[in-house]
Design a protein around this nucleic acid. Structure first.
Length: 286
DNA sequence: AGTCTTGTTCGACT
DNA sequence: CAGTCGAACAAGAC
């Protein structure tokens, strides 16, 4: 499930493979709905002959900038993967888009669940207008987070999963961040104390930074899990403290971790470290 | 063999 | 408008 750290890992991998400064020679759309908004022929026509000028990330989007000024966005959603295949190798099952670059490089988009999308955005459009701040950039200060939570009556977990609040967080890193900050996932955002917001800010950045350093999180085996462009597993699974660890002891207090559903999402937390009780005296978590 | 799981977005509804 | 809820997407795991 690629979230910010996994997408960042993919983007760095693509750069490492020298994707910037290549020319797109061919596009093979093998499943047309993998491309949003354009028919395969129009998509191919817009891309073939274009030079790639850069590869970056915004939220969970891979952003491939082109010399035409437009940008090719790739969202991996749940099971999308990019990998280079050797010349001669035939695309296989769930390989939905193949891009051929100069130098015989062929990049394949593979997606078992078919949720991932390619999106071609003209230079004039701003596809990121609704996204919240990048949590690892310097502009994401405690005050910035406080501003995002201000006046919000929603539960903190669904609010953090909303890409308009903070860009790039997903289920794994929200559960991990809330555990580090000792905040119950169902806490109403506008009941968080300044101290709790500060802890949450620190937690989000530490959790994401570590996951990026570890090349993302890969849980279990199987094709549906995260693999970087080079086919490597993420090494961050060992750094997780609560995600999918219900029943195991809390690394902080030793009491069993719990699982519940919050906003229709599987949610992992420590009932002892992250209590929901509100003290009437302070309005802060007990 | 049917049910569950999984993340995100979007539309409908309150 | 803010927020909640369910649908839709698709296929593998169990």
């Amino acid at each position: 499930m690629p979230e910010l750290p996994e997408v960042e890992t993919v983007v760095r991998d693509l750069r490492k493979h020298g994707l910037a400064n290549t020319i797109i020679l061919g596009i093979d759309v093998r499943w047309s709905r993998a491309v949003s908004g354009l028919a395969p022929a129009a998509f191919a026509k817009a891309l073939i002959g274009r030079a790639v000028t850069g590869v970056t990330r915004r939220a969970k989007y891979i952003v491939i900038t082109l010399d035409s000024g437009s940008r090719l966005l790739i969202h991996l959603r749940m099971t999308g993967k990019l990998r280079f295949i050797p010349a001669g190798e035939r695309p296989g099952k769930h390989d939905h888009v193949v891009i051929t670059f100069d130098g015989q490089r062929r990049l394949v988009f593979n997606d078992t669940r078919k949720f991932g999308r390619f999106l071609l955005c003209p230079a004039s459009s701003d596809p990121f207008a609704k996204l919240g701040p990048e949590p690892l950039e310097d502009t994401f200060t405690v005050a910035a987070l406080r501003g995002r939570l201000e006046g919000k009556r929603r539960m903190i977990k669904p609010l953090l999963l909303d890409q308009a609040t903070v860009a790039g967080l997903g289920n794994i890193y929200v559960d991990e961040s809330l555990w580090h900050a000792k905040i119950h996932p169902e806490r109403r955002a506008d009941t968080l104390s300044p101290l709790e917001i500060r802890r949450l800010h620190t937690a989000i950045r530490a959790v994401l930074r570590r996951a990026v350093e570890n090349g993302g999180t890969t849980l279990g085996d199987g094709a549906a899990n995260f693999y970087s462009v080079a086919g490597h597993r993420g090494r961050n699974a060992d750094a997780l403290n609560v995600f999918r660890r219900d029943g195991l002891p809390c690394p902080h207090c030793g009491s069993p971790l719990a699982r519940m559903t919050v906003g229709q999402r599987g949610t992992h937390f420590c009932p002892a470290c992250q209590p929901l009780l509100i003290s009437p005296q302070t309005g802060h978590s007990a």
